[in-house]
Amino acid sequence: MAQHLSTGYLTRQGKLQRFKSRLVTDMKHNYTLYLLVLPVIAYYIVFRYFPIGGIQIAFKDYKPALGIFGSPWTIHYGFGHFIDFVTNPYFERLLRNTVLISFYSLLFGFPAPIVLAIMLSELRGRKYKKVVQTLTYFPHFISTVVVCGIITQFALSDGLFNQIGQLFGAQPVSFLQKPEYFRTIYVGSGIWQGVGWSSIIYLAAIASVNSEVYEAAALDGAGRMRRIIHVTLPHIEPTIVLMLIMSVGNIMNVGSEKVLLLYNPSIYETADVISTYVYRRGLLEFNFSFSTAVNLMNSVINFLMVLGANAISRKVSETSLF
């Protein structure tokens, strides 16, 4: 046993030695390449790894005057801010609203660009296609503030939505005051704004499909729907899966910006999310530690979600992120 281990160790040691000597030779040979990569490595160390140390303020009562390292640890062995947040009477509602908005965004917002991309790729007229594409990209470039201003105006009781509704005999409703409409408005406007832009990656994936495959399928008598189902979709499946895994990693991130611009207290019940709560609380007391703790918690959950989605996808579809 001991013998075996030690030889293993030695071999590993030997391998390491060999690797080192090879590395040195390689470095001498290709030093320009190493020089070239140096800034990138430095970038990652300085901007990506070094700041990770700052996460410790989530476990501390951070005060700018004392600095990151000098600030004292919080109560409950450094978990004071986490406990504070989880035991908050609003915690359940914030979590539910955040996850549900994410979930609906994923459920309806994720397939939308795929459908659009497939429809665009099936279009014949080049000009028409270009026009449609440009029109669907366009909302992406409007700032959130403007989009929310438009939505707010449209949702008023005498706004566009109600004027359309009234043509069909509906009673006017002030949509942004009914908790039950908020998620629909949020997710719907999100799709309207992002669908064109997100479809680009799928369009690129579809474009890479060899046209001979389509021709072969057509010769075999496959109609348009069959070609989509049996040729297009399988070809862009890896892209879809990768995008899905990455989206799942954002489940806890509902940005405060858009919600802040759209919500008002009469719909807090469905609209108040973690980020907006942290924002409101931050107004009373600039508590970096509390917001770091909440964001750290979100990130850990997001990370676990990505791992989970990745594992499932590896089993089910043999495509995975890592």
Partner: peptide, 24 residues
């Protein structure tokens, strides 16, 4: 300040929400 930050954020949220509910 810690007491106000912890409790008043909730109270303030709750009051605004309740005022909206009472009025509407």
């Amino acid at each position: 300040a810690a007491i106000v930050s912890r409790n008043f954020t909730n109270i303030d949220t709750y009051c605004k929400e309740s005022i909206a509910k009472f009025v509407t």
